[in-house]
Design a protein around this nucleic acid. Structure first.
Length: 269
DNA sequence: TCGATCCTGTAG
DNA sequence: CTACAGGATCGA
């Protein structure tokens, strides 16, 4: 589910619900979600209060009292939210934090690929320093994108997923941005024509911004279908369906073991 | 730079 | 039953 806009929505909701709350206890239903930590290490969170939460790329960092920090990555199917009572938690709750006010913070993850880690401030800095620019921040300019593209000979679409180059673009929005900027996904990054670089830059921002607007309203708690991508999607998941610009059937290919969707007619090589 | 891998769920 | 899933890491 979550790409950058969805993670942003999760963090915003989390902040509204959880800042200022105090943790009563921590339940770890699945050790793998906190590995390589031991569940017992999380006892240090008992009594801690939640001070801040922020997002960097698709990473979530939660700052707690006592100079403690949680690092949460939702991966494919993770979700983080607060519910009124722990007994309402879904079957796929992997870690939950009972709050002193009786509510609970739930980390839910059906595929269990995501992680909930305890980290130090130094570790957070190390993680963040390894990431490329945030695509929705002013620091991400067409010139910066041009410089990033120049350093890679790999096909542009897998390159867009490389978090060390640009942080937060995922599989759906990579295909979408290329469709909007009419760039073939197999084009080598350093071969993208200069004229199309600014198109790509604005397409990345457009696609992420529009998704962000929908995600905050649409990213729901358990049981509700998560369909934030179902509106505004022009190429992703539309194999065989007509391109919205030229009616040519959208094609699906595999790149770096991920699906890519594009229009073979209006995204020429 | 690729393929395999971590997992579970759902669609075909 | 198989294929595939919006992520990221690891080893070859």
């Amino acid at each position: 589910m979550p790409e950058l806009p969805e993670v942003e929505a999760v963090v915003r909701r989390f902040r509204e619900a959880a800042i200022g709350a105090s943790i009563h206890s921590v339940q770890i239903e699945r050790a793998g979600t906190v590995a390589p930590h031991l569940p017992s290490e999380f006892k240090s969170l008992h009594g801690a209060s939640i001070l801040r939460a922020h997002r960097r790329a698709k990473h979530i960092f939660i700052h707690l009292s006592g100079d403690q920090h949680l690092h949460i990555h939702l991966r494919m199917t993770g979700n983080l939210y607060v519910i009124p009572d722990y007994r309402l938690r879904p079957h796929s709750a992997r870690v939950w934090f009972r709050l002193k006010d009786n509510r609970s913070i739930i980390y839910e993850d059906s595929r269990a690929l995501g992680k909930v880690h305890l980290v130090t401030r130094a570790q957070i800095e190390r993680i963040e320093s390894g990431l490329g620019p945030e695509p929705l921040e002013p620091t991400f300019t067409p010139m910066i994108l041009k410089a990033i593209l120049a350093t890679s000979r790999s096909p542009i679409k897998p390159m867009l997923l490389d978090q060390t180059r640009i942080a937060g673009v995922g599989n759906i929005y990579a295909s979408e941005a290329l469709w909007h900027s009419r760039i073939h996904p197999c084009t080598r990054a350093n071969q993208v024509p200069v004229r199309k670089i600014s198109k790509l830059h604005s397409a990345i921002q457009k696609v992420l911004r529009e998704a962000a607007a929908g995600a905050y309203a649409g990213y729901q708690q358990p049981g509700t279908a998560i369909e934030s991508e179902s509106f505004g999607v022009s190429a992703y998941g539309r194999a065989g369906k007509p391109c919205l610009r030229c009616q040519t059937p959208i094609k699906r290919i595999t790149q770096a073991a991920r699906s890519t969707f594009f229009c073979p007619s209006c995204q020429p090589c």
